[in-house]
Amino acid sequence: MDNQASSSPTDAATERKHAAMLDRLSRLHDSRNCLKSHDPNDTSFESTQTFLTNFNNSKLSIESQLSQIPKSCDPRSDINNVSVSISDLENLIAQNSYFLPPYELRASLKSVADLRQNLDVISSRVIPKKRFSFKAKKAVGNVSLASAQKVFDEMPVVESGEKDGVLVVRESEGFKGKENEVLVKEFKIGEEEIGEFMLSDLMNCEVRLVGCLRALFVHKLVNCRVYVGPVFGSVLIEEVEGCVFVMASHQIRIHHARGTDFYLRVRSRPIIEYCSGVRFAPYCLGYIEIDSDLKKSNLDEETGNWANVDDFKWLRAVQSPNWSILPESDRIATVNISGLEQQ
């Protein structure tokens, strides 16, 4: 009797600890079941290693499918299938994001963005479509057009002592150091002037770029309205505030933008970094021959990617708070930039 009495406090404490442990395990089990309720057969939630195995296997499969598209008898169907597979891979990341380390999450998101971009490049090559191109003898300096395009499309991002992720752009022809002006430039097919163009250090300006160009660099604009014809390469935007951009391009990357609206048509998903208060809507530009220019640049089809923005500084699966869809009631009407003389 005494032995039972002396052991009861220890037994009671052990039972309480055991009950508390069971309660914690039960809550953890319930939370995981809640997250997995959409797909009871999904086992990728168990560990980071399991996720990485599944992710890498799917990634390798997609890369293999991408390599086969140029040889396919039905490339359109294969392109659609690969696009669905990439979407499934995005869903896999979203489903597992709650336990993934930040590095693995960011690397996975970057891999998916690269797959999307590769699919866009392959699609533009294999689907028959009349496209604008220079003659073989045309070159940019001593570099062929194809080589120059690759350089611009893969322009690196470097670290800065004051700000991370500052884009490196070379000096090129453009509008620089202007205030309170209307700036107009027309790009004509076959002229040497077609190439890269820069907008830098502009305040309270309206910029109208008519025709096709290959690459556009934008740096330090405040309270400007920028209307751009089709860009069949890349657009790089750095440090803009209170602006409106209307542009069509194959690739668009935006750094350090604040309180700015973007009306886009873009072949790949727009990328933003270090941005806040940016809003997106579909392309709404008009001028004489714009339909022809869009076809020559392979930008005549609306992809809907203006609404599929990748925020590389937002690692969670939920919507980034740094960007939003511009409400229809706040959108500008189609802007016609025909009829102005070149300045």
Results as ranks from 00 to 15, higher is better:
Lys71Cys: 11
Lys129Trp: 06
Ser108Val: 06
Ile122His: 04
Cys34Lys: 14
Asp300Arg: 02
Gln342Ala: 11
Gly277Glu: 10
Ser44Gly: 15
Leu340Met: 12
Phe55Glu: 10
Gly286Pro: 00
His250Lys: 08
Val210Thr: 12
Ile122Tyr: 01
Ser77Lys: 15
Ser72Tyr: 06
Arg116Phe: 03
Phe280Ser: 05
Ser67Ile: 10
Ile272Thr: 10
Ala307Met: 12
Ile271Arg: 07
Phe217Cys: 10
Asn180Tyr: 11
Cys243Arg: 00
Ala20Thr: 12
Phe99Ile: 06
Arg125Ala: 13
Gly286Arg: 11
Asp201His: 10
Leu100Gly: 11
Phe197Lys: 08
Gln117Ser: 15
Ser234Glu: 06
Phe245Ile: 00
Leu299Tyr: 05
Leu119Glu: 07
Gly195Val: 09
Glu289Tyr: 02
Glu154Val: 01
Arg253Val: 00
Phe134Gly: 04
Pro270Ile: 12
Phe312Gly: 02
Val143Gln: 15
Phe175Ala: 02
Arg125Asn: 12
Leu115Gln: 07
Cys243Tyr: 07
Arg116Val: 00
Val182Ala: 02
Asn322Phe: 11
Ser31Asn: 12
Phe187Asp: 11
Arg225Val: 01
Pro282Cys: 02
Phe312Leu: 15
Leu183His: 06
Lys71Gly: 15
Phe217Trp: 07
Arg32Cys: 07
Leu35Phe: 05
Asn180Met: 02
Phe262Val: 05
Val335Gln: 07
Val228Trp: 01
Tyr283Glu: 02
Glu302Tyr: 07
Leu326Pro: 00
Ser108His: 11
Glu192Asn: 14
Arg32Gln: 08
Ile127Pro: 07
Val240Gln: 00
Val82Cys: 10
Phe232Gly: 01
Ala146Lys: 02
His219Gln: 15
Lys138Ile: 03
Gln4Glu: 13
Arg267Pro: 01
Ile271Phe: 02
Lys220Cys: 01
Ser123Phe: 00
Glu90Asp: 15
Val210Cys: 08
Glu191Asn: 12
Asp164Asn: 08
Val318Gln: 10
Ser64Asp: 14
Phe245Leu: 09
Gly229Val: 09
Asn3Tyr: 06
Glu192Lys: 14
Val207Gly: 13
Arg214Ser: 15
Ser6Trp: 02
Asp39Arg: 06
Cys275Leu: 02
Gly141Gln: 13
His255Glu: 13
Arg76Cys: 03
Asn308Lys: 12
Tyr103Pro: 03
Ala307Pro: 01
